[in-house]
Amino acid sequence: MNNKLKVLRAMHDWSQADLAERLDVSRQAVNAIETGKHDPSLPLAFRIARLFNLPIEEIFDDGHG
């Protein structure tokens, strides 16, 4: 699944560790989501959306939208 997490993180000038701390996950988890190696669960996707104040579908794209 494609996502804009890396771009959004850069816009906020956050490192992967900064974002991981805000989402209460490991830095490896953030890296895996950004590189498309891990699709977040719905609860984590909602936490990400709330953090960036955006709808989930503006951050994640399954390629069928």
């Binding site: 890396k6 850069a10 000038d13 956050w14 490192s15 992967q16 560790a17 900064d18 490896q28 890296n31």
Partner: peptide
Amino acid sequence: MAMADPHSDSANDPREISSA
């Protein structure tokens, strides 16, 4: 708003080592 290198991983200290 300052833009950071999106590939960067907060390596403020170059001696910093990863958890791996």
